[in-house]
């Protein structure tokens, strides 16, 4: 047996756990899902072929548009807002003062709370009458919205909850911030650049690769929002005026509340196409704003 053949076998053998898993729990369900999306299937009767009917029905389904609109709001408004918050926290945590490690721990701490427990805590903090937030707002003479029951305020509630978890994203920014060579800043300072110029022309470009990474992870996360809506709204109903009906919640509801397995599979495939398209667009446009050092 020659060496390249031997190393192929060894490599393949080492990778085989993942390869088997990919075939059985990846590729097979992936292909089956496409088949199911062309059928009417309730788990009990055998699947009935309906061709493209499910896909046609999606584009006439009000819930589809509602869930897509809610999800896109989270992806393109909530995620960028959250990234800015993460960056601000990272800049704070990058200050050179004694005891900064303690502050890093404090800001990261909320990120280790289980989503279910965190959502329970926030549904109490956001209680319109007795919740801490509205008590503070009233004390300051500010309006006190019914956060979780007013359809206009449910998604802002999620943005608020997202701020609390900004520590995790901030630490990723922080690691990148610390990778910016000091001499760049020193050289710019000698040349008379002020703090804002240095931030704008040195820090931001240096952070662009990690921003791209966080943006993509954030977008993917936005398309998976489920637990918060489920806990805060007490199920997959989508909350007041379905303002918390997100794409993943809608897929879950169609599949497991209504047992529309075929239709839900078609929804999942539309989601897949949307996510791939968004990822491609971001990668393509990223060439204009992402700067890789040393290339």
């Amino acid at each position: 047996m020659n060496t390249s053949r031997k190393s192929f076998l060894t490599g393949f053998l080492f990778a085989s756990p993942w390869i088997i898993g990919f075939l059985v729990l990846g590729l097979f369900p992936f292909v089956m899902s496409f088949y199911y999306s062309m059928t009417d299937y309730d788990l009990f009767q055998p699947p009935k072929w309906v061709g493209l009917d499910n896909y046609i029905a999606i584009f006439q389904d009000e819930n589809f548009y509602k869930s897509l609109k809610n999800t896109l709001f989270m992806a393109f408004i909530a995620v960028p807002i959250n990234l800015i918050a993460c960056l601000l926290v990272a800049l704070m945590l990058n200050m050179k003062v004694k005891g900064i490690a303690i502050f890093r721990t404090v800001f990261y701490l909320p990120s280790v709370i289980p989503a279910v427990a965190g959502a329970m805590l926030w549904s109490w903090i956001l209680n319109p009458q007795y919740g801490l937030l509205n008590i503070i707002l009233r004390a300051l003479g500010l309006p006190d919205p019914s956060w979780l029951t007013d359809p206009a305020f449910t998604k802002p509630s999620l943005i608020l909850m997202g701020f609390w978890g900004a520590g995790a994203g901030a630490l990723i920014f922080l690691a990148a911030l610390q990778g910016v060579p000091r001499m760049f800043h020193e050289a710019a300072e000698i040349d008379g650049a002020n703090a804002w110029d240095r931030f704008r022309h040195i820090t931001l470009p240096a952070l662009s690769p990690v921003t791209l990474f966080q943006l993509i992870m954030g977008l993917i996360g936005a398309f998976q929002i489920f637990t918060e809506s489920f806990i805060l709204m007490g199920g997959s109903n989508g909350g007041p005026d379905q303002s918390m009906l997100f794409y993943a919640v809608n897929v879950y509801q169609e599949a497991f509340s209504f047992l529309h397995m075929g239709y839900a599979s078609a929804l999942a495939w539309v989601l897949f196409v949307i996510v791939v398209l968004i990822t491609i667009v971001i990668f393509k446009t990223s060439m204009r704003w992402v700067y890789y050092g040393g290339e």
């Binding site: 729990l25 369900p29 993943a248 897929v251 397995m261 999942a268």
Partner: peptide, 13 residues
Amino acid sequence: ILPPQVMMIPTYI
């Protein structure tokens, strides 16, 4: 990058 919702239903089945 693949959203788990795509795999959720066929895997459940």
